Amino acid sequence: MSNMRRKAGPSKGDLREAAILDVARRMFAERSYEAVTIDDLAAGAGISRTGFYFYFPTKPAVLTALMARVSDDFAASHVWFDSTGPAPDLLREQLLMSARIWRANAGLLSCSATAAASSEPLRDLLTHSKARYDERAAAKIRRDQANGTATTAITAERLAEMISAIRDTQYGRLDQATDTELRNVVDTLVTAIQRLVYH
């Protein structure tokens, strides 16, 4: 009979790391990137500055960990990319989910854009996230071009880039948007994307 005990729950280290991330999410939502210090993050998590470095080497490393989670949330919302043809209802569902994620993390996204200039790991994560979105969009469009529903006047890759640019421009206005305003933005995007891609 094994003497191995099943782990009862998260370790003290896991809890402290989670506390740092929770504090960071709140602070980056309320302040500029420059206004948040490692001392702020450590104090908010109830640990010393030295203790902070046991979990994260830098402030951008905290942002990278948070943005990895947000990136996964975005990826999980991409229900339209697996559909066939225009599928406007699935497009609306995908855009509603991703718009809500964007709005909920507007401060974090803004801080990440600032920090990426000086953090290669964060910059790589953001680049990978965008590429993942564009590749999935292009794959869907290529399938729809092959079945005759999507335009072939523009390459699938270029259409995917255009969708990404249109979406990001509209989402950039969502940080203080009401639910009604958010839905209006999504409706506009659905119409624009459908007209751009399909006959």
Rank of each mutant, 00 (worst) to 15 (best):
D144F: 00
D144Q: 02
Q145M: 02
Q145S: 05
Q145Y: 01
A146P: 09
N147L: 14
N147R: 12
N147V: 11
G148K: 06
G148R: 01
G148Q: 02
T149S: 11
A150Q: 06
T151G: 10
T151E: 00
T151N: 09
T152N: 12
T152R: 13
I154D: 07
T155Y: 05
T155M: 06
A156E: 04
E157C: 04
E157M: 03
E157T: 04
R158L: 15
R158I: 15
E161V: 05
M162E: 15
I163A: 07
I163W: 00
S164D: 06
S164R: 06
A165L: 07
I166E: 01
R167A: 03
R167N: 04
T169C: 09
T169L: 10
Q170K: 05
Q170G: 12
L174R: 00
D175P: 14
D175L: 12
D175E: 14
D175S: 15
Q176K: 13
Q176C: 12
Q176G: 12
Q176A: 14
Q176N: 14
Q176M: 15
A177R: 00
A177S: 04
T178Y: 03
T178C: 03
T178P: 06
T178A: 04
D179Q: 06
D179V: 02
T180I: 12
T180G: 14
E181C: 09
E181Q: 10
E181S: 09
L182I: 07
L182N: 05
R183M: 14
R183Q: 15
R183I: 11
R183P: 07
R183L: 13
N184Y: 14
N184S: 13
N184T: 12
N184K: 15
V186L: 03
V186C: 01
D187S: 07
D187R: 06
T188D: 10
L189K: 00
V190Q: 03
V190K: 05
A192M: 11
A192H: 07
I193D: 08
Q194V: 13
Q194W: 10
L196A: 05
